[in-house]
């Protein structure tokens, strides 16, 4: 919360934590100072389940550059699997 930059997304799916698999209902995406990554600032993604509580958390801290790479990889996979209609919002229309 040093930056206050957080975007939350409702998600459906499953995540695997120390206690095994559990359903996910939220992804919290922050731009902030990481706990562990050797980077001054990072994209921090927490996959959460509100009902289960704080321990239901799968966390990643990515350097800004690698977060962009991940975004492109996700969109590329979606595009290949579900068609060309899937693209990032900031991509210009074809």
């Amino acid at each position: 919360m040093c930056t206050g930059i957080v975007e939350n997304a409702k998600v459906s799916g499953s995540g695997k934590g120390p206690d095994g698999w559990y359903p996910l209902d939220q992804a919290s995406v922050s731009y902030d100072h990481p706990d562990h990554a050797q980077s001054g600032r990072a994209i921090i993604i927490d996959f959460l389940n509100e009902a289960v509580g704080p321990k239901a958390r799968i966390a990643v801290e990515l350097t800004p550059e690698s977060a962009r790479n991940l975004v492109h990889a996700i969109l590329a996979s979606l595009s290949r699997g579900e068609g060309e209609g899937v693209r990032a919002k900031d991509e210009p229309p074809q």
Partner: peptide, 19 residues
């Protein structure tokens, strides 16, 4: 008030809640 657990997990919950 956000619950108990590992400090970084509780902090993540607070972060998601907007502080």
């Amino acid at each position: 008030p956000f619950g108990q657990g590992a400090p970084e997990d509780v902090a993540a919950k607070v972060r998601a809640a907007g502080g």
